[in-house]
């Protein structure tokens, strides 16, 4: 058997012995971005379909999560930057090759739109809300009249945002665990699922809850399918990607991945939601919290594990 022993003189901080340059900020942002994308997607979808009355929580109440999620997400991204005073350089150029560049532009567009959307429906949450200035009332009325146009723009941006949270990672061919095109759709579906879970959690209307329970169930199914696909793809790929999959199939991330992401984050809530739909009484916040926390842990594990995988040593 041929053995190899490698000694490297390089000891750069956060690079050696194992790359760890991205910390908690990035997975937290990926989660918040996905959550905002999910919530906004459903709000826009049902507005376009003209079902505001049927799904009042999805259209009017839940979207208030989005501006908070996006602002905290952006704050996390800003904290991650090491040359913070130069962050504005992001907005001096458009680089289509770099997912981070068009992601930054997407955030620039969708964040103010999420504020506008929440403002239009703020009176649904706080009935005594007063804009104080008449021009704000005029602006609100104008937005409300053109809400379908806003909805079309938001639904497109929400899908881009959801996919982008995955493509941000999959663009790095140096990290075999991330370097797969399934990561974009997978993160989009996971984001939509956390969004649907939040709507289900907030909603007080049992019919609406049932619908979002069903939507969530379908999304969980798709997510599980994508995860199996991801691992199968790795196992059929090159050596570095086989090693990446092995991190989850017996390696150091096996326990957190299968217990917290697959078990508690997907399978258990799916069973609880099925029981609920079959007529058993289950407090809705249990599956909702499990899905949301599962989505968060999933992103932490993907970012941590991805940085362990490599081509050389």
């Amino acid at each position: 058997m041929k053995e190899e022993l490698l000694v490297s003189g390089r000891q750069n901080l956060n690079i050696d012995p194992v790359l760890h340059i991205w910390h908690w900020q990035i997975p937290l942002y990926l989660f918040l971005g996905g959550l905002a994308a999910g919530v906004l997607f459903f709000a826009a979808l049902y507005t376009i379909q003209g079902k505001e009355k049927q799904y009042p929580t999805a259209v009017k109440i839940a979207p208030i999560i989005a501006p908070f999620a996006l602002v905290f997400g952006l704050l996390a991204l800003f904290l991650d930057l090491k040359h913070q005073l130069y962050f504005w350089q992001l907005y001096t150029t458009v680089r289509l090759d770099s997912p981070m560049s068009w992601g930054a532009w997407t955030l620039m567009a969708i964040t103010p739109l999420s504020f506008i959307w929440s403002a239009v429906y703020i009176k649904e949450i706080f009935p005594n809300w007063d804009w104080k200035f008449s021009f704000l009332n005029t602006f609100e009325a104008w937005c409300r009249k053109n809400i379908k146009i806003f909805a079309w723009i938001i639904i497109i941006l929400a899908i881009i945002l959801g996919v982008y949270t995955g493509i941000l990672l999959s663009a790095f061919n140096a990290r075999p665990l991330w370097n797969t095109s399934i990561l974009g759709p997978l993160f989009l579906v996971s984001g939509l699922s956390t969004g649907a879970a939040s709507i289900m959690w907030i909603s007080k209307d049992s019919a609406e809850r049932r619908v979002f329970s069903k939507i969530d169930l379908i999304l969980i199914g798709i997510e599980l399918f994508f995860i199996v696909h991801l691992l199968m793809g790795f196992m059929a790929s090159s050596k570095v990607q086989i090693e990446a999959a092995e991190l989850f199939l017996g390696g150091e991330f096996t326990v957190p991945f299968w217990i917290f992401v697959i078990g508690l984050g997907l399978v258990v809530p799916a069973i609880l939601e099925s029981l609920e739909l079959m007529g058993k009484h289950i407090p809705i916040n249990i599956p909702a919290i499990l899905i949301i926390v599962g989505g968060l842990i999933f992103r932490f594990i993907m970012v941590e594990a991805g940085q362990v995988t490599r081509y050389l040593y």
């Binding site: 790359l19 340059i21 930057l81 130069y86 350089q89 981070m100 140096a174 490599r310 081509y311 050389l312």
Partner: peptide, 13 residues
């Protein structure tokens, strides 16, 4: 801007 995306992208670290 110090986003470190290039560090993540380099196969040679």
């Amino acid at each position: 801007i110090g986003c470190n995306a290039c560090i993540e992208s380099c196969p040679y670290d």
